[in-house]
């Protein structure tokens, strides 16, 4: 399968700065691509567009040649956000986060080190690192073909970061899920990804 952005452009308001202009990228199922760019280059915006949270002004996003917006129900492209605490409902227990995913396999929950006891807690009762594990498990249900990770480990400690990434690399490799990662740390991307793309110079490395 392939996730493809064709000549997409984006700006938040008319007459404001163009955040993306005629940008194209292709992600294969076996790819782990790291995006490197200075801040203000619209990396988060790009992730949102590729996952269908925002619509590009020009160009299109295709999954297997079919426009992303035509997919109904569970979206084959899922995104993990930087701030897990904004991505879970503060009034629902953590169990609900997993249940909201599309039949998340218990092996995913185990693999991420989620303990049974956390399931009954509310988001305020667990740490950011633990919450991010839930957010990752939620998008690894059946039907996920591509995963976008936007600075997912910036707020976590180094060991948690390493744990989560080791799991993600293995899981995406095994299930042939294409991965596109954004991080400010080039060193991290070098460890995680198979290819790096420099947005500023539009070159692969």
């Amino acid at each position: 399968m392939m996730l493809e952005a064709r000549e997409i452009s984006f700006q938040y308001e008319k007459n404001s700065r163009m955040i993306l202009e005629n940008f194209s990228i292709q992600v294969e199922s076996t790819d782990r691509i790291g995006l490197v760019a200075p801040s203000g280059f619209g990396k988060t915006t790009l992730c949102k567009i590729l996952a269908g949270y925002e619509r590009p002004l020009g160009g299109e996003v295709l999954v297997d040649g079919k426009a992303l917006s035509e997919y109904r129900g569970y979206c084959p492209v899922q995104m993990i956000w930087q701030h897990p605490e904004q991505s879970v409902n503060p009034r629902r227990r953590m169990r609900a986060v997993i249940e909201e995913g599309n039949q998340v396999d218990p092996s995913v929950v185990d693999g991420l080190g989620i303990e049974a006891d956390w399931m009954n807690r509310f988001p305020a009762e667990i740490s950011g690192g633990e919450m991010q594990r839930f957010c990752i498990a939620r998008v690894l249900g059946e039907g996920t073909r591509f995963l976008l990770a936007d600075e997912i480990s910036t707020m976590l400690d180094l060991i948690t970061q390493s744990q989560i990434w080791h799991f993600l690399i293995e899981e995406t490799q095994r299930r042939k899920i294409g991965l596109l990662t954004v991080s400010h740390s080039e060193e991290l991307l070098k460890k995680v990804c198979t290819k790096l793309y420099y947005l500023e110079t539009k070159t692969w490395g």
Binding site: V88, E100, G141
Partner: peptide, 13 residues
């Protein structure tokens, strides 16, 4: 506008 609501829609809810 909450993130978790948008995510729920993306998860096919």
């Amino acid at each position: 506008e909450q993130n978790y609501v948008k995510i729920a829609y993306k998860l096919g809810k």
